[in-house]
């Protein structure tokens, strides 16, 4: 409430005690390579979408893993599923399947299955 001409700031700190890790668990179960990302960023570097938007597949995976899923819907829609990320990933992460699972998880969230 802005009663005095200023408001209380939203906390930028990730409070791991309060985050929701259900999406991460869902993706991990369906696509085990989700676990082995080493955050090298070669996916984002080669990403067609990342060249024109702030989309980063690396960061998307990390934020899901940390349970920060508020912006996932907006972010994941930027992926064009071209598959270049999968080609360059040094750990063999199945990036396309992760994207598909993110969509599924989002759907399950809207119908209260997750």
């Amino acid at each position: 409430m802005n009663k005095f001409g200023y408001t209380i700031s939203r906390d930028n700190q990730i409070d791991y005690d309060k985050v929701d890790r259900s999406m991460a668990a869902f993706i991990e179960k369906n696509e085990p390579t989700f676990r082995i990302c080493i955050q090298c960023g070669s996916c984002a570097a080669s990403c067609s979408a990342a060249n024109f938007t702030r989309f980063s597949f690396r960061k998307l995976c990390l934020l899901i893993r940390r349970g920060l899923t508020d912006d996932v819907q907006k972010e994941v829609s930027k992926c064009m599923l071209c598959g270049k990320c999968r080609l360059v990933c040094p750990r063999g992460v199945n990036t396309r399947n992760i994207i598909l699972n993110v969509h599924q998880a989002l759907h399950k969230t809207t119908v209260y299955e997750l």
């Binding site: 990730i14 409070d15 791991y16 005690d17 955050q39 690396r58 960061k59 990390l62 940390r66």
Partner: peptide, 12 residues
């Protein structure tokens, strides 16, 4: 700080 997320983090 979760430097790869660019945000400070607190965890119990």
């Amino acid at each position: 700080e979760d430097t790869l997320a660019g945000r400070p983090m607190k965890i119990s």
